[in-house]
Design a protein around this nucleic acid. Structure first.
Lengths: 339, 339
DNA sequence: AATGTGCTGGCAACCGTTTGCCAACTTTTG
DNA sequence: CAAAAGTTGGCAAACGGTTGCCAGCACATT
């Protein structure tokens, strides 16, 4: 059995092996590999060569244990079922990988307790967390933000950095669109009450409707899931309204299915506008008029913010930052002139 | 400023603090918390009480460093864009959380090299990995499996545990369905060549078509993305075939869009059958006839297999295990009798 | 020539937990 | 009643890095 030098040791390569090979102290190896300027250029080259030769891979756990930095960011979503989060995850994934961080994906199952418990349990093994659609109270969030670097998405709390997708501003466009098509009676199909954007969207719709002198009513709340679309559709039909704006596309697509079953024509009998422009909004039947949100960008931006928070360490200056991303109305087939 | 005892120490609680409080050695605390039977019941109770009181959270890194177990499983997907993987991720997420493991999500961007590099780099910080749609060669996979516990999904390699979604078997049903509708000329719309299931599906289609005495041709390959559907649709139209089976639903949905643009009627002019039954297959227009795959279940099963591999440590007995999950044909609107 | 300064590298103490080994004590057994 | 076996708990050495502190050296300054 001839064994290559590299195969001889089943035990993984450590900085000590590199130190032994190059004749320097382990500490020097550590510095050469992680603090570029701290060692002589020549020795550093030698060490890097040796590391390459030995096929050295640093041990993340050990590094984390002594330095406190884990190189891991958690991304919490409230329900992986929802395609909206896929976009977020895609965005965070891209940025995190580019920055050399690992992404820990956590589903909080729409439960604030689970969210808090998870975060608390993992806070020592994370460098930071991104909360997409947190169900936590403002106080709980602010408290958590002192324990661990945090960025929230679609949730505005003092003292916590955040990325806000400005769907409420887009609602104005949607209302104008519907009003110009002749609609005078708008229904807001409400999502979960515990959702922060839900409330914001309703308020935006109400004030916008008032500005245009049209009626605004509210149906729901409904869970933000496709099956709930049936109940939502029935509720809306019952109001005799001619147009509705729906909390999100998932629910709106569910409604479309139900309305088709019932023989209600869209947009002939009723116009439907969704929010988010998720996967599927452009190929459902009819295709969905919706407020297109820069979902993936939101994920990317949240990571950038979090990382700069980690490196800059400017507790006060940065603490208030809040990035607002604009949305726009994408008109498709589900909205049309009043019959 | 009154401070509660727990708030007094900014430094996180360690087993030493618990040891000091209960008057035992740190090692005893460690054992009480992780090896239930190893300490006296009474002392264990005391220790657990103290741990609760101090709000102790074990340090994952330290535990991993000395024990070698990290409590983390990586899930590698080739493109998070693809809704198919959402199902997988959902399944793995559920099982992993239930078992107390953390899920590291990695997007390999369809690159075998990136996949191998990532896995190699992280192998020491992982307890195992689940490879959904690996782009690695059989040899590379087998080699990797000796470095780190592995379960593949939709990839059958000797020496590597796997979960196979048996779409090829379902293809038989799909062919029968189409043949019974009068189709005599079937096109297989091919996905990426590097994809293992792609080849398997084509072979299944071919042999099944032969059995029924109908023609089977092949178009492509095309990337498994929605935009590629345009090219695929055009290619299929050009063949004058009356029915096609498409590598996956994503591509099929892309084709639907294009065919509609071109005014080609589905299923009037051409019948389309997809594979997987992803999110959207039931509300696209027309709704998609497809081979429904137990995607989420595949994710769950793969985790179960991996975890049992970790605990049982039966290198030979288990090494060959391969779970096959059945699929079935779901007939919707996109397939119909020949004109 | 003496002092100051900047650059390198080594020493050794951590980081928080696990675990092999041993000692003391209790119980069972012959 | 002595020896064997089983419990229970402590000691101390890992695990693999990071980092504060110090020393040696070269060079520039006065």
């Amino acid at each position: 059995m001839e064994e290559l030098p590299s195969a001889k040791r089943a035990r993984p390569v450590t900085i000590n092996d590199i130190a032994a090979l190059t004749g320097v102290a382990p500490s020097t190896v550590s510095r050469a590999l992680s603090k570029p300027g701290r060692v002589n250029h020549a020795t550093r080259e030698r060490i890097e060569a040796a590391a390459r030769e030995l096929n050295y891979v640093p041990n993340t756990q050990a590094r984390a244990l002594s330095s406190g930095r884990t190189g891991t960011i958690a991304v919490l979503v409230s329900a992986i079922t929802n395609p909206f989060y896929f976009g977020i995850i895609r965005g965070t994934q891209q940025q995190l990988k580019a920055a050399g961080y690992a992404q820990l994906l956590i589903d909080t199952e729409d439960s604030g307790e689970l969210e808090a418990a998870m975060l608390h349990k993992m806070r020592r093994s994370l460098d930071g967390a991104i909360l997409a659609a947190s169900r936590l109270s403002d106080r709980a969030l602010a408290a958590l933000a002192t324990e661990i670097p945090l960025v929230t998405i679609n949730r505005n709390v003092r003292g916590v950095q955040s990325v806000i997708i400005d769907t409420p501003a887009g609602i104005g466009q949607a209302v104008e669109h519907l009003v110009s098509l002749g609609h005078r009676d708008l229904i807001y199909v409400s999502g979960p009450q515990s959702s922060w954007p839900n409330e914001a969207r309703w308020q935006a719709l109400r004030s916008s409707a008032a500005r245009h002198g049209v009626q605004a009513r509210r149906a729901g709340p409904f869970p933000a899931e496709r099956p709930s679309g049936s109940a939502a559709a029935d509720a809306v039909v019952n109001t005799k309204a001619t147009a509705c704006i729906v909390f999100n596309d998932l629910l709106a697509i569910g409604m479309l299915t139900r309305l088709r079953e019932r023989g209600v024509r869209v947009p002939g009998d009723i116009s439907i506008v969704g929010c988010d422009d998720i996967f599927g909004a452009d190929f459902c039947h009819p295709t969905l008029t919706t407020l297109t949100a820069p979902i993936e960008q939101a994920g990317r931006v949240s990571v950038s913010m979090l990382l700069s928070l980690l490196t800059d360490r400017l507790p006060d200056q940065n603490q208030r930052r809040c990035v607002v991303l604009p949305t726009h109305l994408t008109v498709r087939e589900s909205s049309g002139p009043i019959a």
